[in-house]
Design a binder for these strands. Structure first.
Lengths: 222, 222
DNA sequence: TGCACTTATATGATCTTTCATATATGTGCA
DNA sequence: TGCACATATATGAAAGATCATATAAGTGCA
């Protein structure tokens, strides 16, 4: 379970509440990690219980009190221990979309093409999101943290600016991979659509021009 | 839960046992779906309970009996219903490796480079596996099923050959995406390593030539 | 000879994740 | 005026995934 370590990582940068951490997740690591709010709360509780962070409760009017988590020295050590630990495996992936493409022979070609086109839309949405994050990034995490209200206006960031810039370098690097993969996937969708379409038209040459498409598609139904 | 539908999908092609299905998974969809044996057994049991497949028990000497699952008409319908259902979201990803890179500013540059290089090894292993699957693929699923003993020697495949070739088309397409993504990731690792190394050498120009590297790295420790 | 691996099933325990729900107020939009 | 959404926490329940373990014979390798 590395949600814990992701949270410890962000807390290393700055104390935060569970709700804020959810926002930070969405605006920085969403392309390779996602977290449910309820799970964040539970994990923060675990972090507290294990003595990896301390909590300060800040009452609010009309709203539930903010529980602000601050990393302890133990938490910091655990985070660094995890951070240095080598990664041995590729991430576990379960891609419903590819599973459907894999079984494409049980559909009509046109239906598979629909799946591919729809997925391209999903990818475009995701790319738009990445661009938004990218736009935000140049001013660094600081701006993000400020916009989230974690850093008060006029207050200095609670960590070195050099380190912050260094951090930005890595954040951008991971984002760049996100772009690369999304773009490669989009390209692949186009290629596959073309491949499927050309297959249909090749058939049309040798057999009847129009009705054949449906025949072939029907044949695909094993 | 689409493990169920993945299993139904393979059972649409050919009856099989849980153990065989595990092997089929590893040799075809491992790059976008992975399944634990114990989970496969449990899901097959669910499939049976829901009337999506029937089971024939085949005793063996010295070994537990083989439970051969055959898809029912209901199972086939459920599979096709799922297959046509549009996919609205990108897959949920949790990439431990990228999480560590993201927090790279808390490590020394050399340590991050180590992470990247190690990951490249993991990717190479994966690419080798893909190539193996690719080599196997041209003779189609048939050969795979035969090698797994699902189809007896000399017996015809229990489904049309045209459909089989069509199936191969899609299987290869998903594999191609697997290659693309693994290659793009590998490239990104190299680029990122270079970027980090050039950063270090730029610093060396302006400051002391050798000792500086360590200084900078130390500075990265926020 | 010994050890590891393959074949083949299955369950208990636990971990992780998701979904639904509850509460309560302020803000912006139509 | 009404409705959705942001803020802010939290829990119950269920679904889904992983890990350990059990059984038991055969095969291949050093």
């Amino acid at each position: 379970m590395s949600l814990k370590h992701a949270l410890l990582g962000f807390l290393t940068i700055c104390p935060a509440t569970g709700y804020e951490l959810k926002g930070i997740f969405e605006n920085s690591v969403q392309h390779f990690w996602n977290a449910d709010l309820s799970q964040i709360y539970r994990t923060l509780d675990e972090i507290k219980t294990e003595g990896l962070a301390t909590v300060r409760v800040e009452p609010q009017e009309g709203k539930p009190p903010r529980h602000i988590y601050s990393l302890s020295e133990k938490g910091r050590e655990e985070f660094l221990r995890w951070l240095r630990e080598p990664v041995k495996d590729l991430p576990v992936i379960r891609n419903h979309f590819l599973l459907k493409i894999f079984f494409g022979a049980f559909l009509q070609k046109e239906e598979v093409i629909e799946h591919l086109k729809r997925y391209q839309n999903v990818l475009q949405e995701r790319l738009a999101k990445y661009r938004k994050i990218e736009h935000m990034a140049p001013e660094g995490f600081e701006s993000m943290l400020r916009s989230k209200g974690i850093i008060e206006k006029g207050t200095a960031a609670p960590f070195e600016l050099t380190a912050l810039k260094n951090h930005l370098l890595y954040a951008i690097a991971t984002l760049r991979l996100g772009f690369k993969i999304a773009e490669a996937t989009d390209e692949w969708c186009t290629e596959t659509i073309n491949e499927l379409q050309s297959l249909a038209s090749e058939k049309s040459k040798t057999e009847k021009p129009k009705s054949v498409k449906k025949q072939r598609a029907k044949g695909a139904k094993v």
